[in-house]
Simulated assay, not measured.
Amino acid sequence: MARFTEIGTATIPGNGTRLRLLQRNDEFSIKIAGTTGELMNSRVHGSEDALATLACERIADQPSPRVLIGGLGMGFTLAAALAALGDDAQVTVAELVPEVEAWNRGALGAAAGNPLSDPRARIHIGDVAELLRSSEGEWDAILLDVDNGPEGLTRKENNWIYSPAGIAAAQKSLRPEGILAYWSAGPEHAFTERLRRAGFSVEPVTVRALRPGKGARHVIWLAW
């Protein structure tokens, strides 16, 4: 069996954590240097797809829908959002690590079908928190997959996204009838209640990492 080969590295701004991009034939993996576990694998993206599909199907009939995605990753959430929306949509992805954009415009891009090449896609290099703080009534859907979930793994600053202040900023950024969605590696009742206390109706949806009925169970919170 072929072995993974490192084809790229990147440092997460602000904390020095190093990411490694690995390739084995047509399979890609992103890991944190010095650990054995994976952050992402190109063969396991069912829940990333679901993050986009579950939210975008609720706004697909909106005229010229605008979607904000926090976290580019391997591009699967972006690809699923574009597939669910019409030609008049615009999808902006905020990605903190510049090299991740470069990876997706290079060899990695083929894994998700090169969604950054779609004219409806936009990229913002920087923290999605910047866009949440600066926008008001701008987005029909906000999809947040910036860490492992409400308990941040890769960067402590990500915890703000899941805090009452971060939730309030996202709420302010939504258009009327907009939808807010969060990805998480697992359930957390306290976060469900935090969203409800902010005034949202909330539906935590359990999805599978690989495909329906297969893979680890992840959670998508839908809030409106």
Rank of each mutant, 00 (worst) to 15 (best):
V219I: 13
N114E: 14
I32V: 14
N25T: 04
V128A: 15
L210Q: 12
K31L: 14
E203A: 15
E177F: 07
V205Q: 11
D26C: 08
L210I: 07
A223K: 02
G178K: 01
A181G: 10
N148D: 15
E136Q: 11
D118W: 06
P212N: 08
D61S: 13
N104E: 09
S134A: 15
F28L: 09
G152A: 12
R133L: 14
I32A: 06
A141F: 12
T5L: 08
F200W: 04
A2S: 13
R20I: 06
D140W: 02
A168P: 00
A84M: 09
G8L: 09
F28W: 10
K156A: 15
L19E: 12
K214E: 13
V146P: 01
L21C: 02
L51E: 12
N158M: 01
T92Y: 05
R208N: 15
R196S: 06
G149H: 04
L78F: 02
S64L: 05
L22T: 01
R208E: 11
W103G: 07
H189D: 15
A216D: 15
W221N: 09
K156V: 05
R3C: 10
A216V: 00
A94E: 07
G213W: 13
R208H: 14
T36W: 00
V128W: 02
R211Q: 14
L21T: 00
G109S: 07
A52N: 05
I125T: 14
F28D: 10
L54D: 11
S184Q: 06
F4Y: 15
R43G: 12
L85R: 03
L180I: 00
A181L: 06
I32D: 01
R155F: 12
L174V: 01
D147R: 02
A190K: 04
S42H: 04
G46D: 10
V219F: 03
L51V: 01
D61M: 05
A10F: 03
L21Q: 02
I69G: 09
G137C: 05
A129F: 03
G178P: 09
W183I: 04
A2Q: 11
G14A: 10
I59V: 11
D145G: 11
P164R: 04
A94L: 06
A169K: 00
I142F: 05
L174A: 06
A190F: 01
P98L: 08
P63K: 03
L19C: 09
A110M: 03
L180R: 00
P119G: 10
E99N: 08
G152W: 07
D118K: 05
R175A: 14
D118E: 04
G109I: 00
I123F: 08
G106I: 02
V207T: 11
R120K: 05
Q171D: 07
K172G: 13
G46R: 02
D118V: 03
G73T: 02
L82H: 07
V202K: 11
E99R: 08
K172H: 11
A169H: 03
G215H: 07
F4L: 10
A112S: 15
G213M: 11
N15V: 02
R175F: 01
